[in-house]
Design a protein around this nucleic acid. Structure first.
Lengths: 202, 202, 202, 202
DNA sequence: ACGTAACCGAGACGGTACGTCAGGTCTTATC
DNA sequence: GATAAGACCTGACGTACCGTCTCGGTTACGT
């Protein structure tokens, strides 16, 4: 996702780019994103908040979109799938963890922006999808596949389908539901229903 | 969602607002939205395409956002739930119908914009949610509830949860999946899985 | 100066134009002119202040400029040249009278507008000049001519030149001098100087 | 009259303002002023003619009026009073020189605009008056005073009054007289009359 | 040790679109 | 047919950002 030009390539003469500057730009971007949202976000605001010149931003990123995308990557959720417990428990743990990290102003901005850029079919978001979201999806799918064989679940069900179902459900809950609707309980019930749907009908 | 001042209320003094103008603005907005996307959309472009002065736009809507929201309402999908068949068939019919209407450039713009404005918590999108999306959700819930009693499905499952699961799934498929991935088949399988999950475990 | 279309011409069918409306438009124009100046004056403001529709204004005058010109004519100064006294006294009386009528916000607006439109060479102001200003100039010239023969003044001096000299002087005093500079005294001295200049050099 | 912020004061951080841009804006303003007059003048037109962004104009001047005033200052006439000859000759030289510079479309625009803004009592024009017109007036007064003592003219006459008389006369001729009325001859006669008026009546 | 190339903050630059305002025209219902 | 109201198209206003550029000044590497 980094579009910097001479980070690695060149022979690196002259003053090297300051990591401090890099960080403060990303920090400023994230805090302003959380405070005002994507629409009201301006590069000039970011530069001022970061105590940085505009050129230092454009030296690192080609345009506003690229900066925002990289900033949001900073907070992309860590999946830590504990291998213990049955599928229900593992998925719930996963979902709760993901939801917790996303259920913040910044997290919602990220989801919403991801969706916006996806449906705008910008190439930047495509690479974001391929490099980050897709692998995670596959990870979930493989977890499901592992448990499918251990627990007596129908081997006819498409595990990718199940992960889509769950991811869509979690995102929908996060984006559309008022924050105080007992999110965790909903997740638990939804997952149970889906896992139950994977059982061989008797 | 309409912000017009004297549409219904007033005593109708002066020249009435032209419905023709109203329509051509909305039409121009939709066609430009489909052609260029939200980011590139400009009021000046809309006015020109519609053959209308900018003031005629701002007389009806307070700003660009309000216009876009109302324009997108124009294409909000019609749910026509056929009462025939079992739950699987009814839901599939519903989903396929919805997906078909949304699986267009404009439809995706609409979904993505809906999500953006939702997570930006603007009051405009809140009312949109309450007036349009929520009732549709309830409609689906009630359809599920009716079938739950007829077919032998567990009466422990929360029907709202099921509809959330399905809506989230359909939206996710629409927004994130490449257009040529056998959408209909995926929908069918996903619905079957969920409905299967509603059965009493034997 | 009146540009009305069917005042006299037509057979006058239908409702006749209201003189009341005409007056209140002119009054509103003058009061707003005095309050805000030409620059800030808007037709919509005038219509509102006069309690009148915009069309009633445009039915009577072709555009803003025409309305303003006619409004300012309302307050054009009355020359009442008392025939008594010597030239000095007569001219002073005339000048003081003119200055008094012009030394108001409206009067200055009028002079300044007259000059603006003159140098813009609009046809409206040309007719204004020919119909009103020029005759007055000639009147002054003839007064001077009469006294020239009575009092022993050089018959070589061009009376038009003298009136131009005086008018220019009075206008300059009105427009450029702070209001509290002893205007009357200046006028008196200036006139004396000019009249003295008309005497045959001994 | 200059409203620029960091021309002289600041510590000169950031890219300095381009003199070239400054000049081309003023030039464009003047040429458009001469072509179309004040009324038809638009900032957008100026920007285009100058090959400049609107922001570069508004960075230097707060609004259209301020720009126009400064542009007109560019063409303010140079008085070059030759000290040779008697008062008649000196004043005629001065007047003819001034008239020549002002007897152009731009010159008339300038005079008329000066008067408009003066009578609108805007603070901008006040400073213009104090910084430029008033000193010139005083200069003329002092020239007259010098000659008054040399030539045998009454020391009772107020020299400021005489200069007002002359300035008013010249302006009036410039603004109100058709361009081909023998301006120079009129000026000569008028000045002779006034100078003659300064003589002690025998 | 010392040039010098690339960095840095600041802010001017040419653009584009915003939302507002006014001018002059047109269209209602009412008088 | 005049009237008050107000919608209509047009076009300029002054503002806010975008992404680029140009200043003076500052590192840290390579000679």
């Amino acid at each position: 996702m980094d579009i910097t030009q001479n980070s690695v390539s060149g022979e690196s003469r002259g003053r090297p780019r300051s990591n401090e500057v890099h960080r403060s730009i990303l920090d400023a971007t994230l805090s302003l994103l959380a405070e005002h949202g994507v629409e009201k976000l301006s590069i000039e605001m970011i530069a001022q908040r970061a105590g940085v010149g505009k050129s230092s931003i454009y030296r690192r990123w080609n345009n506003k979109e690229a900066l925002i995308v990289e900033a949001l990557e900073q907070i992309k959720p860590e999946f830590k799938a504990s291998a213990e417990g049955d599928l229900n428990e593992v998925l719930y743990e996963l979902a709760r963890n993901f939801a917790q990290q996303m259920n913040t102003p910044l997290g919602k901005q990220m989801l919403s922006l991801l969706i916006s850029t996806i449906s705008g079919s910008s190439q930047i978001s495509e690479s974001f999808w391929e490099n980050h979201s897709l692998p995670k999806t596959k990870e979930i799918s493989s977890i499901i596949a592992q448990h499918r064989s251990k627990e007596r679940l129908s081997d006819k069900v498409n595990v990718d389908l199940v992960s889509d179902l769950l991811i869509g459900f979690v995102m929908y809950q996060l984006l559309f539901k008022p924050p105080s609707t007992g999110l965790d309980a909903s997740l638990k019930q939804g997952i149970e229903l889906v896992v139950n749907g994977m059982r061989e009908p008797n």
